[in-house]
Design a binder for these strands. Sequence first.
RNA 1: CGGGGCGUGGCGCAGUCUGGUAGCGCGCCGGUUUUGGGUACCGGAGGCCGCGAGUUCGAAUCUCGCCGCCCCGACCA
Length: 445
Amino acid sequence: MRYTRYFLPVLKETPAEAQIVSHRLMLRAGMVRQATSGIYSWLPLGLKVLRRIEQIVHEEQQAMGAVPLLMPTIQSADLWRESGRYDDYGQEMLRIKDRHDRDMLYGPTNEELITDIFRASASSYRDVPRILYHIQWKFRDEMRPRFGVMRGREFLMKDGYSFDIDKAGAIHAYNKHMVAYIRTFERMGLKAVPMKADTGPIGGDHSHEFLILADTGESEVFLDRAVVDLSLGDRRIDWDDRAAVQALVDQWTGPYARTDETHDPAAFEAAVPEGRRESRRGIEIGHIFYFGTKYSEPMGATVSGPDGKPATLHMGSYGIGVSRLVGALIEANHDEQGVIWPESVTPFHAGIVNLKQGDPEADAACETLYETLTAAGLEPFYDDRDERAGAKFATMDLIGLPWRVTVGPRGLKNGVVELTSRRTGESEELSPEAAAAKLRAIYGR
RNA sequence: CGGGGCGUGGCGCAGUCUGGUAGCGCGCCGGUUUUGGGUACCGGAGGCCGCGAGUUCGAAUCUCGCCGCCCCGACCA
């Protein structure tokens, strides 16, 4: 993409409404624009990041065996009356009426809808286990939206639902999600820690929130540093091997890690050596939950078991805050100059800065580099504006592409361009061909 | 929902107390200059001062009502 053909409304000054760094930078970098309180338009640059996060989530969900579908944003109130949640949900649910005066709502979540879909078609124990998920916009009418996309009213969420014949099966589905989530967040360069969450009236110990550690996080968290050092890496996982998946879950849930909601100071001190105790702040980016027959029971979601008798399905639901992740990623990856994207989610793979637009040699070198990278399957962002070097650098730093290739007459005289890492600031001079080759190697293209 | 604050060119703000017909910086347009980290100068364009009533000869400014947005708190992916 060329700057002069793109839509990138960057701001030099910080809009007054933005408090936290991710919100400021998303506005300044032209990623989002507030439509009204807690509701945002995603501008081209922000949308690219959102899509890349979605893509990783899709890949890891499907690798684990979940099946994608797409449910609507608007739902009928009828199903919610069936589960009993229409009255329970409160003011956070946006209730609307259609022209026939029927009660509708903008879905804050989809348990009822998915249960309705599944019960209509699943009749035998052979139809389970299944995991269905979608990535769809949700709406929760928060009393007080804040922190930009991190706490908006409208938000994009991956929500998945598992259906099993019994609790043991459902726990396996739960465990698969935990491991898949760890891998998903690792791919985004995030250190996400599963923390025991409050299960409310359902009880049991099968609810975990995933939090990333960031100084600006909303929740206070207490953890054993040992959990931070764990890494799934790229090891192969046999998703059908219950014991193997359970072992991974045990490994990650062994060390103490709790939010202030479930924190038990006495247990913390007893379980964790003083040198490893950490008190940090965290941002919740995912939540997994086994809830048994909470919806299947009232909604009559049953299948025939091997013995011919009806069995009520055991379910779980699993969420990832996709739009929130964009903000969370920035909270975890930025400096004074702007955003620093991890390579896995960057909107463009590399920026090309032409220091002297209009100089035949510089222009030609940039064009060639642009073509080479594009041909290799990379997406370069070429700043071809007739601007001064300083302005171009400042913009590149702000939007945070992990790599920048600086091309100018001075370097070209010696046959070199400069390849700079946004994260470390280190740069090296090398031929345009070598720079392209290095970028291809970095991205494995 | 309780408490506080703010709505003035695209953005950040001053002007409001002490009514007299709108200003600064950035950005934008044109020109000169400059050119490896937001160059300097000159000349421009752009605002029914959130909306509606009222007071007044006259309202961005005073009064009343409404709308919107932000911050703190309680609540939440």
